[in-house]
């Protein structure tokens, strides 16, 4: 069977109207998410309105950068020039509540990764700072 390789250049960020302040905070190595004072909740990805309170007032609040692995997947196929396979991806439940996708760098757990505690590490790649995770 022929397998096709999808190569679409380098990975790129979605930079919508509400994403830019978040990526600026990441460049400053102080990842901040939108926080709604009315519903007392963080949200991700950035968006115009709190889906709970419908408040359009929010503040950019730095997160602790710690959380727990909810699940993981290993890519064996090349989708991006800057991600040669194999490489890992993880879903992390931040202590503030939202779930983010990242990569686990450094030592990897043996067996089941779910439940492992992680913290953010900022990595510079191609002129952009990307928040990655490592075990704590």
């Amino acid at each position: 069977m022929v397998t096709r390789e999808i190569v679409v250049g380098s990975s790129s960020r979605v930079l919508g109207h509400y994403d830019k302040p978040m990526w600026e905070s990441i460049s400053n190595r102080k990842w901040a998410l939108q926080y709604c004072p009315e519903s007392d909740s963080f949200r991700y990805p950035p968006s115009p309105i709190c889906p709970d309170s419908l408040s359009m007032t929010y503040e950019w609040r730095p997160i602790k950068g710690t959380g727990e692995i909810l699940s993981w997947a290993i890519f064996h196929r090349k989708y991006f020039d800057d991600f040669p396979p194999p490489y890992n991806t993880i879903a992390v439940r931040l202590d503030e509540g939202p779930i983010v996708i990242s990569n686990l760098i450094g030592p990897e757990p043996e067996g089941d990764w779910i439940g492992c505690r992680v913290e953010v590490v900022y990595e510079d790649s191609g002129g952009v700072t990307i928040p990655k995770m490592r075990l704590i």
Binding site: S11, S12, R13, V14, A73, F80, Y87, T89, I101, N103
Partner: peptide, 9 residues
């Protein structure tokens, strides 16, 4: 597409 910066797509 949102998680492309981590190679997740």
């Amino acid at each position: 597409i949102y998680h492309a910066p981590w190679g997740f797509t």
